[in-house]
């Protein structure tokens, strides 16, 4: 399969989240080696990363944008998310304590836990011109 790229640029605001997800869904439609669950995993990871960029990365700044690029490598789907806000490196949080009572449950960190659970690799780079988060999801042979 030849490599294909699909890119979308939208304002860094919560209203853009459904459009980012639609973009991923449309790009993955009929792609070999990605079943419905694999696509859901990618949608979840992208949504959580974009939510963090919107609510934390651009906090206290003028409104900016997020660029989402979808690329099919032979054995993986690669989603590159670029932004120009504050650096916000995704760090894997501890798994939620499934035995904790409802009063003790903490939801903070769950989004990043989902990101790390849903894709095979996460690469992050920050430079004075912007930040790049790359999510890699392997495709089934």
């Amino acid at each position: 399969m030849t490599e294909t790229h699909r890119q979308i640029t939208l304002p860094a605001e919560l209203e853009s989240l459904p459009f980012f997800r639609e973009h991923i869904k449309a790009a993955c439609q009929g792609a070999a080696g990605l079943d419905d669950q694999a696509i859901y995993d990618v949608l979840l990871a992208v949504d959580e990363i974009c939510t963090n960029i919107i609510t934390h990365g651009y906090a206290g700044m003028d409104p900016g944008s997020i660029i989402l690029n979808v690329e099919f490598a032979p054995q993986a789907l690669v989603v590159t998310i670029s932004d120009f806000g504050h650096a916000f490196e995704p760090v894997e949080p501890p798994a939620p304590n499934a035995n904790a009572s409802i009063e003790e449950r903490e939801i903070g960190g769950l989004g990043l836990f989902f990101v790390f659970s849903s894709v095979d690799d996460i690469q992050y780079e920050s430079s004075p011109v912007g930040n790049t988060t790359r999510l890699i999801k392997k495709r089934a042979a």
Binding site: Q37, L44, F114
Partner: peptide
């Protein structure tokens, strides 16, 4: 299924 996986990953079956 996708939602169910999220509920399971978060351990929500023990509290809801």
């Amino acid at each position: 299924p996708g939602i169910d996986k999220v509920l399971k990953m978060a351990g929500f079956y023990n509290i809801v």
